[in-house]
């Protein structure tokens, strides 16, 4: 059941929840992430912060294998993502789906259990109970039967969080979980994140509100196409680093990356990272 602490053996050696090495991602010739090296510790609330177009969502998607990097690799709990899928929960941006889809809140949450269910098996009473308890955890159990377009923005965000809870993951990747939600929902999400942390789980969230970073998170990743800084909030979340993240345009880097990608465009396959090989 979600909410129970995990009873797995503690790792003998401290392993990073996520390790990113030399990661470069581009959409066509537009560079989005440039040479990212990153290790994120387990059991912490981690914010990814940076201006619009800094590549925050892309970093999450690269970790999840949803976009192919030009170079570099990602490991999740010391293994390729494909082997760690069942350890990872994902909360996409709310705007990424059509909320007029013919389904209700409970059904969306149940989608978090499909990975476990496997082929051909239909969700049954047990899955229903699990999904309901996940809705309960985010405080909207009474909305289980409601069509998803009839939910407010904050309620839709809670449905997505409940779906991730249903994944019963060790690591949660969340794309702007606080975006466009009301104050009550914001408090509820924050309480939930702290519960997850207490249970030893790791949360990595794209966050856009600089005012609350220090209050909500333990660890921060400052990103603006390149990695500006990453570490405990107290050490890294400094005015100087913020200026580096938000001030100053990276014109030379952008220009050079574009030239590089144009020269590689002839044979992109040669430079693409494939599978879990290193």
């Amino acid at each position: 059941m979600p909410g129970e602490p995990m009873n797995e053996d503690p790792n003998p050696l401290p392993v990073s929840a996520i390790e990113v090495h030399d990661l470069t991602v581009a959409y066509r010739t537009q560079p989005v992430l440039w040479d990212i090296d990153l290790k994120l510790p387990e059991g912490q609330l981690i914010a990814i912060v940076g201006p619009n177009g800094a590549g925050k969502s892309t970093l999450l998607k690269a970790i999840l294998g949803l976009v192919k990097p030009v170079t570099g690799w990602v490991r999740v709990f010391d293994a390729p993502y494909a082997q760690r899928r069942s350890w990872v929960g994902y909360v996409p941006q709310r705007e990424s789906v059509d909320w007029d889809f013919p389904t209700n809140a409970l059904d969306v949450v149940t989608m978090g259990l499909y990975g476990r269910l496997g082929w051909l098996r239909r969700p049954g009473r047990r899955e229903r109970e699990t999904a309901l308890s996940c809705l309960e955890q985010v405080g909207i159990r009474d909305l289980a039967g409601r069509q998803i377009s009839q939910l407010s923005g904050g309620q839709q965000q809670r449905v997505f969080l409940a779906r991730a809870l249903a994944q019963q993951a060790r690591l949660y990747l969340m794309d702007e979980p606080f975006a466009g939600v009301d104050a009550t929902t914001e408090r509820a999400i924050l309480t939930l994140l702290n519960e997850l942390k207490r249970e030893g789980r790791t949360v990595v969230a794209v966050h856009h509100d600089l005012q609350t970073v220090a209050e909500y998170f333990d660890h921060v990743v400052l990103l603006n196409m390149r990695l500006v800084a990453a570490g405990p909030v107290r050490e890294v979340f400094t005015p100087e680093n913020l200026h580096k993240t938000y001030g100053g345009r990276l014109t030379v880097l952008t220009q050079a990356t574009e030239s590089l990608l144009r020269s590689r465009a002839a044979d992109p396959a040669k430079h693409q990272y494939r599978g879990g090989k290193r």
């Binding site: 294998g65 949803l66 494909a82 899928r85 994902y90 996409p92 989608m111 499909y114």
Partner: peptide, 8 residues
């Protein structure tokens, strides 16, 4: 994306 990330 979610389908993809969960291994479908």
């Amino acid at each position: 994306d979610f389908a993809d990330a969960t291994g479908q």
